[in-house]
Design a protein around this nucleic acid. Structure first.
Lengths: 303, 303
DNA sequence: CCAAGTTGTTCATTAAATGCATCGCTATTG
DNA sequence: CAATAGCGATGCATTTAATGAACAACTTGG
């Protein structure tokens, strides 16, 4: 779309913080870019950049403009996808931000199933912690966010949800695998491995530990859920994860036990979108599929 | 805004049904316009007009595009008004579609009150019957619709409402003014004057008459509420209107009596907007003021 | 007070949009 | 059935708008 060029440039300038830098990135001269911006400001009727000595910065009006532009761009993408849809071939692109826990099994399965029915649809998956995922949603950089225990910003709209008890992962032969019910204090008495603070599992554990007068003291703290799963098989420790990122059948040598809900309340896995936005056809249908899958999961209540 | 030019032209072509006519209206040649459209279609990736022998017509894709454009235009207007708002001076424009009943007292008073506080805000008021008012809303041609007994299309969002009993208007000295309670059958036994079929008052009366085995048989049927009010003072007849379009104090020589609610259920006056749309600041505040006014009216329960 | 970095301005140049004349097509009309 | 009028598409010359290059004016930090 040609008309959007100016907006794209404005966005680039806002990102770069300088007209010259943005111009260089865009492959035009600073003077041309500067004039586009001033012309736009004239037409719009207000300045959108603060002119500083060391560059430029969006002012509040500019923030509004940028928000408008992003929403317009996403809406145009939706229109295009609807048009492609009514012309018969189901094309489109779905862009999801998700927590790490969805990476090993859930999302690959869901995407594969969707693409089996609609091979014309492509996907992009970005991995973000819960607050970043919501930020991507708000910036219209993705259509859907699938996150555990989101921070729930104002413009976040819940599409579907599914409770997820915190689970302990251990290697076979770990002493705690014999216990019929796994209490948090038992886990904390053994060496444990935990995700870092920005993750939902950790924040649930922190709160729960505090309420029994204890503290999470991981021997290894990491951003990578994958590392946790592998580490517990290397050193005899306890890791914490949520069931959707685990698969009892497939994880050979790994034992998965829910931590007693008396100690740690289950968190919620949430599929969300930007409030008030109408999604492209493909994203909408994918969201419906995910919702159904989460619902089925809740029915089965497995982990 | 420059970028929207092509969309404006597309809209003009869709309205005119012909590229040549639209080009003439827009003051450019048909060839230029034709090429803008084909270029847009290329960029967009799909045809948006059906080429017929006698001109062009929007296809479904074109309808979507037009809808998108209108929504974007209105959203841009909102952004501009927000920017004007945060720059201190409260400027803006409010555009309302309303039923005739609001013209004599209610809307003038409300607009005047709002403009007293915010002189920078301008208004446009268009008069439409209830279904037309909703159509204007859906086409983003106005921000608010204030209508009696709307037909309630899918994208119509209720902001506020206020019940309005159907009232009979008569000249002083009309025999029915003596009755303590006014029954519908009494009214129908006298010569009466009614609004035409597209109006809410009439449809309420039609339903009510039918349920008592009668029929509305107006000696004068008109689109103009004003004519009704004046006619009942010329020939001894009964007119029907809703209280918000009347003012017991100010209507010299006119008697207003509610028709018994046992016969005719009260209709509802509704303030609505297009679903999912965020209104410009001025329109939003005006809507809030109207809501409050309607609420106060309902409390006073006067007519 | 200078060096480095920025926005804003001027003018020649380049790219895009437009106007004009014309073609081919189709429905209408006599 | 043929003439005609109205339509969108297209090639070419022209006008208009956007751009690039160089420079001016300004702010900040040392």
């Amino acid at each position: 779309m040609r008309h959007m060029e100016t907006f794209r440039l404005i966005e680039a300038v806002a990102r770069a913080g300088s007209i010259r830098k943005a111009a260089e990135d865009a492959g035009i001269t600073a003077s041309a870019l500067n004039r586009r911006i001033t012309r736009f400001e004239d037409e719009f009727g207000a300045q959108i950049f603060e002119r500083l000595a060391r560059g430029v910065r969006l002012n509040p009006a500019g923030e509004l403009i940028l928000q408008h532009y992003r929403s317009q761009r996403s809406d145009m993408a939706r229109v295009q996808s609807q048009v492609a849809d009514l012309s018969g071939v189901r094309r489109g692109h779905v862009s999801v931000a998700c927590s790490q826990a969805l990476l090993p099994y859930f999302l690959p399965e869901q995407i594969s199933r969707y693409r089996h029915d609609h091979p014309g649809v492509t996907f992009s998956v970005i991995v973000r912690d819960r607050s970043r995922a919501e930020a991507e949603l708000a910036a219209f950089n993705c259509d859907l966010a699938l996150v555990f225990e989101p921070v729930m910003m104002v413009d976040f709209d819940i599409v579907a949800q599914c409770p997820q008890p915190v689970c302990a992962v251990m290697a076979e032969g770990h002493p705690l695998t014999k216990k019929p019910e796994l209490r948090l204090r038992d886990c904390l008495n053994h060496p444990h491995v935990a995700p870092s603070a920005e993750y939902g599992v950790r924040s649930l554990l922190d709160v729960a530990a505090k309420s029994i007068g204890r503290q999470i003291t991981p021997v290894v703290e990491t951003e990578s859920f994958e590392l946790i799963r592998h580490y517990v098989q290397t050193e005899q420790t306890i890791g914490f994860q949520i069931p959707i990122g685990l698969d009892a059948q497939r994880q050979a040598g790994l034992v998965i036990r829910p931590v007693s809900e008396r100690d740690v309340p289950p968190g919620v896995l949430i599929l969300g979108q930007q409030r008030g936005r109408s999604l492209p056809v493909a994203s909408f249908r994918f969201a419906m599929q995910i919702s159904k899958a989460l619902q089925d999961r809740e029915m089965r209540d497995d982990f």
